[in-house]
């Protein structure tokens, strides 16, 4: 009954969105595989100055797109997870080791990891993303080549590591040794770039819920990454998404894996603290 009522409501909203340009996020609940409850809306973390409630990008997508994320059989991003499970078991490099040789089952050893990344790394004295950590294991412990920062291999692996933390709250640290990087990311978030002079905040803080042409603007949260996009029919990394958004301001973008994008990722992730890890998500 509740489900029916909700569907009717979303239908009305979809019609409203097509008719006029009114397009608030939907009222809906995400439970994956009938068991994992996803927090898609919650009180904003204390450091947020202009937003009271944070929301997953899932709430801003159409009914069909949202539905694909409710069940792993319908989520095309899970194929990438399966392929990464094979890579997890495959020995590579001069040491003849696989991820599994050191970490055993990803399901146990990687649970909770996604939720706290990007994260300060003491040895490297820098903030590391999951990608940096994965490549660190490859080059330092396996004697294998680093994967391309935003290539399919690494994005698939990030999807596997994210998938085992689904439902856990994002909780990246913004203080201590990470504070300077976090500040740098915040600065980038509010900088208006390119010939259109738009900042991340212009679209994702000032205008979420509004339509920019056919695009329904969300808060630009990263809790759903990697995201399977129907538009390019593949899994997209956080930095690939950032690159696209900066390019759309008619700006010179930063490179995936650059210190600027790592700092921006830490800051944007911290804006989603409290939302559940959702990756791999489905978006349009």
């Amino acid at each position: 009954m509740k489900f029916k009522a909700m569907t009717a409501l979303s239908l009305t909203l979809a019609v409203a969105a097509a008719g006029s340009a009114n397009a608030d996020p939907v009222e809906d609940e995400l439970i994956i595989n009938d068991e994992t409850e996803i927090v898609t809306k919650t009180a904003a973390p204390a450091h947020m100055e202009n937003i009271d409630e944070v929301m997953s990008g899932w709430l801003f997508r159409e009914n069909d797109t949202r539905d694909m994320q409710r069940d792993d059989f319908d989520n095309p991003g899970m194929l990438a997870v399966e392929s990464a499970m094979e890579a997890w078991e495959t020995a590579e490099g001069s040491e003849g080791k696989s991820c599994a040789d050191c970490h055993e089952s990803a399901e146990d050893s990687m649970k909770g990891v996604r939720a706290v990344y990007p994260k300060w790394n003491d040895n490297a004295e820098a903030v590391w993303t999951l990608e940096t950590a994965i490549n660190g294991c490859r080059t330092e412990r396996m004697g294998a080549d680093a994967w391309k920062y935003d290539g399919d291999d690494i994005t698939n692996m990030v999807a596997l590591i994210s998938s085992v933390s689904r439902g856990m709250p994002m909780n990246v640290a913004t203080d201590g040794p990470a504070a300077a990087t976090w500040e740098q990311g915040k600065e980038l978030y509010y900088t208006r770039t390119g010939q259109l002079e738009l900042s991340c905040a212009n679209c994702h803080e000032d205008n979420y819920g509004n339509m920019i042409r056919a695009d329904h603007l969300s808060q630009g949260q990263t809790n759903g990454f990697p995201a399977y996009r129907l538009k390019n029919a593949k899994l997209n990394s956080v930095h690939a998404r950032f690159k696209g958004c900066v390019r759309d301001t008619r700006a010179e973008t930063y490179a995936p894996g650059s210190p600027e994008f790592v700092a921006l990722e830490l800051y944007v992730a911290s804006r989603g603290n409290g939302l559940s890890v959702e990756g791999p998500s489905v978006r349009n």
């Binding site: 208006r192 770039t193 390119g194 690159k243």
Partner: peptide, 10 residues
């Protein structure tokens, strides 16, 4: 402009 780009090429 800050970091102006060549149209939408990035």
């Amino acid at each position: 402009f800050t970091r102006p780009g060549d149209a939408y090429t990035g």
